[in-house]
């Protein structure tokens, strides 16, 4: 079974020839993995109990 699409390009090649999809993935993955997840962790820190 071939993984090629009807236009003869493999899916990975199609991804690499599509800078717009790479742009979206390049923004979404680090923003979710690093930024948003980090912000959520900070947001969940309970306020310090003052003595």
């Amino acid at each position: 079974m071939s993984s090629k699409e009807p236009d003869g390009k493999k899916p990975l090649q199609k991804l690499m020839d599509n800078p717009w999809l790479l742009l979206v993935l390049g923004i979404v993955i680090p923003t979710l993995s690093y930024t948003v997840w980090g912000w959520i962790e900070l947001w969940l820190v309970p306020p310090a109990a003052l003595p």
């Binding site: 690499m16 390049g26 980090g38």
Partner: peptide, 26 residues
């Protein structure tokens, strides 16, 4: 090119290096 794709997808998360001894994140 595949190596450049790995950069695009994963290299930016390395920013967390700077926060490894910070409190707040687990």
């Amino acid at each position: 090119r595949g190596a450049f794709v790995l950069y695009i997808l994963f290299i930016n998360v390395a920013s967390a290096h700077h926060l490894l001894v910070d409190p707040g994140t687990g």
